[in-house]
Nucleic acid binder design. Structure first.
Lengths: 339, 339
DNA sequence: CAGTTCTGCTTGTGCGCGCAACCTCGGCAA
DNA sequence: TTGCCGAGGTTGCGCGCACAAGCAGAACTG
């Protein structure tokens, strides 16, 4: 009757054996009942007795023992790059977690800060699948493989280039296309100051430059902009002098920095300088002027990611293809046709 | 010599027994060497042989088996409320993870979305400690306890009120104090539209109202502001008509929404309406006008959180007190003395 | 030289569970 | 009566490790 029932009088945990003894059956029967093991035949009456006894005693299976005996853990580890978490990413993760959760997998999200003192997480939790939001570095792949995990996404054998992932670069292409279609011929690319984003920014920048070449426009400058940088106004003026009329911003935060600085420096947006952001954050729609931006179907990507993980976990064949580009441009006040 | 060495020819994992056999010692010796078990005396020569053999075979201990045998897992589970992750929170987590990592604990961060299909994470990974960034609900406490975890922070027995946590409400108090000290007598409280933040916003609002009473000023209105809401401009005008001259915003995002809308509606900020944000995001300093905001010492809080978790994990006594308020107000363009 | 202590190991057991293989017993056809 | 079958279980082993207890031999002790 003890309401706790959580612990034996000896402070030992309640095991399946305890339940078995208490229900007058064998340990195996308890396992069969509790796991609904297919291919076993247990009479309804026994089944009920076991279940009753289990709840009465407050039985809870040991995750460690289960993992050990089963050799699997029903965990999917999602590894994040060390980026400041944007809403887009967060939305994507939430959706992925939801889908995997429904399939009975627990999702552990983990940011790899590189310098781990403790064990890498994949050693500690023995996940069935490790999913990277960005392709793993060879060192990471080695470490994960060394932990005995073979199910890794994206497939490391493809030696995938991050610049080939639509979700990563489609936005930048769209940004350039948008400005080009408005008649802007000379552009600048604005990166964030946060060094953690430098690599990603470089990839997007490259994609933007490639797209510019394809469209016959020019990216005349690319640099990191920091809202704390006193020299930022002169950078903007230098852009104008260089004939630059459009700015491709890494994200809305950067776009806001540029636009905010411009407004303060009496540079007209979009008349003098058109700026397009990325991620379509809420801020883009309340900033003054409102910011044109690229929206990403993060829910869709999250779902796709979860599907990849599930395929891997259950040993199904999975396409190595990425879903089609599902980025779209939202035009607002910060961009207009070039004069 | 097999460079893989990861798997036996039979595809079985390499166990401590394999290493033992290969090194010509017993299984226990291998364990003692690899764990540096105190109180055991192994000759340097044997030690080296074991280590060599272990690396040669690519031995990796099974986390599940270790957890099972040891009865502990060296994992700290941090449970997040279901909030959109702000930079502040993220900074706090990163710091906490860093500290715990250094102590040899792996940190798993987990967002509790409520409707879990899979097992709650605390059942799946059997962490030693579960830390909530916000006090757990009774239901959560029950669930965690039911999973056999006794080390929980914040201490659930205190039945702690979230409104009593300095980190949560100190900012709101500071905001009110700031506006009051500038001579604003009638204020409005602006909450975010995201329903996930409703509870937290309510707590902050209450704290603001209490502080207002204490300072002899009045919070005349409190409502959620949504940047997609067409009626927002008229809300602001209504505020002005009601004599409201200062706005306490839940966070910088909300502050930006208010300020952006005001600017668009030809309401002067800060002359007609002073607005103070919360979190001191980068945006606050590039918005036009720049936003006064409350900064939180998130690194300090993260460190404190980690310390609490460590105390709990290692069974040390831990103070139930919170660290003193370490919020500070950054004054920028969006606030000025009342006329 | 018997007795004691210390060193450097080894053997054995238990952690809690999953699952293959095996048992028992009643029903039923030959 | 024997033989077979299927329902409803049970016994036993293995997962990989930690750790208590034991044990041989060397090194001291008196």
């Amino acid at each position: 009757m003890a309401d706790r029932g959580l612990k034996d009088r000896n402070d030992r945990r309640v095991t399946a054996a305890d339940v078995a003894k208490s229900a007058g059956v064998s340990r195996a029967t308890v396992g069969y009942v509790l796991n609904n093991t297919p291919g076993t035949r247990i009479s309804p009456e026994t089944r009920r007795r076991v279940l009753d006894e289990a709840t009465r005693l407050g039985y809870r299976p040991s995750a460690a023992a289960q993992a050990l005996a089963r050799g699997r853990s029903k965990i999917v580890l999602v590894v994040l790059p060390d980026w400041p978490l944007e809403l887009t990413l967060r939305t994507q993760l939430d959706e992925a977690a939801r889908v995997l959760d429904e399939a009975g997998y627990a999702v552990i999200v983990h940011t790899d800060h590189g310098s781990e003192h403790a064990q890498p997480l994949w050693k500690l939790v023995e996940p069935e699948v490790v999913v990277g939001l960005v392709p793993f570095t060879p060192a990471q792949v080695r470490s994960i493989r060394a932990a005995g995990i073979t199910r890794i996404a994206p497939n490391p054998d493809l030696r995938l280039d991050i610049g080939a992932i639509p979700a990563v670069v489609a936005g930048a292409q769209l940004q350039v296309r948008h400005l080009a279609s408005l008649g802007h011929r000379a552009l600048a690319f604005a990166s964030p100051a946060d060094p953690r984003l430098a690599d990603l920014a470089a990839v997007r920048r490259l994609a933007a430059e490639r797209e510019a070449v394809a469209l016959g426009v020019e990216v005349r400058d690319a640099r990191a902009v920091d809202h704390r940088d006193e020299a930022l106004p002169s950078v903007l003026h230098a852009w104008l002098s260089a004939g630059i009329t459009g700015v491709v911003a890494f994200n809305d935060d950067v776009a806001g920095t540029v636009v905010g600085t411009a407004v303060r420096a009496k540079i007209l947006v979009p008349q003098d300088l058109a700026v397009v952001g990325h991620d379509n954050t809420p801020m883009a729609s309340y900033f003054a002027p409102t910011l044109s931006s690229v929206g990403i179907d993060s829910v869709g990507f999250g779902r796709w990611m979860a599907q990849q993980a599930l395929n891997l976990a259950e040993g199904r064949p999975s396409t190595d293809e990425f879903p089609g580009p599902t980025a779209f441009l939202i035009e607002r006040e910060s961009t207009s046709p070039a004069r």
